[in-house]
């Protein structure tokens, strides 16, 4: 059962799951030198499809291509779809050049969500590295909307440099919450950064949570996630209570194209969010 009060929505737009639905760009904004956010609404009006934190959409740029991007907005808001991504590939670069009023194609939402509902009654530790904060932001929104269901809530976020810190204003707001522990660290910094310098993995040892009653949600580069889970386990968090979000090549998003296979899993439909104990065997193998 979901905590969300919204009714589950069935997409009636098309029976063919490969057909994108046109969305219009309402707002475009750079979060850092290479990362940007788009706010989108469906062309012709109406709500965006209900989504769960951690799910993604296949986003299409006219004539260029289609890629999976996690949803970064508030799952309680149905008036606006938010995607944050880095302009690093052909499609995302083309996407970054689109202006307000232009259109994108969107299919989704797809994939398994963060265990925000199963985590009720537990402490929450969210560990994000780099752009990995984007797929975790909806989980933060949902958890904060139902704050009373959870114990301590800790957000540990690591970025490359202060200029790469995502959602800076949001982080500052969250930091002001008295019932939320937010720690931000950067790998390298100049002198005008007053915050912490060091790896996000080093924040875990002192983060205030009860390891025996914690749900950890981790997203970032795969190596960062592996090291994070090691630190979590050092603290005594059971690997059944650690979740990671994986990235693989995806062409369809619905388990038909075969590209995203990771061992026995299809990252698009069995993931992208996985219980760590479920995938650890393959995560430590090379080139799976």
């Amino acid at each position: 059962m979901l905590l969300s009060a919204e009714p589950a929505v069935t997409t009636t737009f098309s029976s063919d799951p490969m057909i994108p639905r046109p969305y219009e760009i309402q707002r475009a904004k750079w979060d850092s030198s290479d990362t940007f956010s788009l706010e989108l609404t469906p062309v012709g009006g109406g709500d965006i499809p209900a989504f769960e934190p951690g799910q993604f959409n296949m986003v299409y740029v006219y004539g260029v291509g289609e890629i999976p991007i996690s949803i970064s907005g508030d799952p309680a808001r149905r008036d606006m779809l938010i995607h944050t991504t880095r302009a690093v590939g052909t499609v995302t670069r083309a996407m970054s050049e689109l202006k307000v009023g232009m259109m994108l194609g969107v299919r989704g939402p797809y994939g398994a969500p963060w265990p925000v509902d199963e985590a009720r009654g537990k402490d929450i530790v969210i560990v994000a590295g780099g752009i990995g904060l984007a797929p975790l932001r909806p989980a933060m929104y949902r958890i904060l909307a139902y704050r009373e269901h959870y114990g301590r809530v800790v957000l540990l976020y690591g970025a490359r440099t202060p200029a790469d810190v995502l959602y800076r204003k949001q982080l500052e707001q969250w930091r002001a919450h008295f019932d939320l522990d937010v720690f931000v660290t950067v790998d390298r910094a100049t002198n005008n950064w007053r915050g912490s310098i060091g790896l996000v993995t080093q924040l875990i040892v002192r983060a205030p949570f009860d390891p025996l009653n914690t749900m950890a949600m981790v997203c970032g580069p795969e190596v960062m996630m592996r090291f994070t889970t090691l630190e979590m386990e050092k603290r005594g968090v059971n690997s059944d209570n650690i979740y990671v979000s994986l990235e693989r090549n995806m062409k369809c998003g619905i388990g038909l194209c075969g590209h995203c296979q990771f061992g026995r899993e299809f990252v698009c439909k069995d993931g992208p969010v996985f219980r760590y104990s479920q995938v650890r065997h393959f995560l430590t193998k090379w080139e799976v």
Binding site: D34, R86, V88, G129, G130, I131, G158, A159, R160, D164, D187, R188, G198, L199, T201, Q202, G220, P221, V223, M224, F227
Partner: peptide
């Protein structure tokens, strides 16, 4: 050991494209 491992990770510059 903790510092060395953290340093190695830092060397990997994981968030860089």
């Amino acid at each position: 050991m903790d510092r060395l491992q953290a340093t190695r990770l830092q060397l990997l510059d994981l968030y860089k494209v």
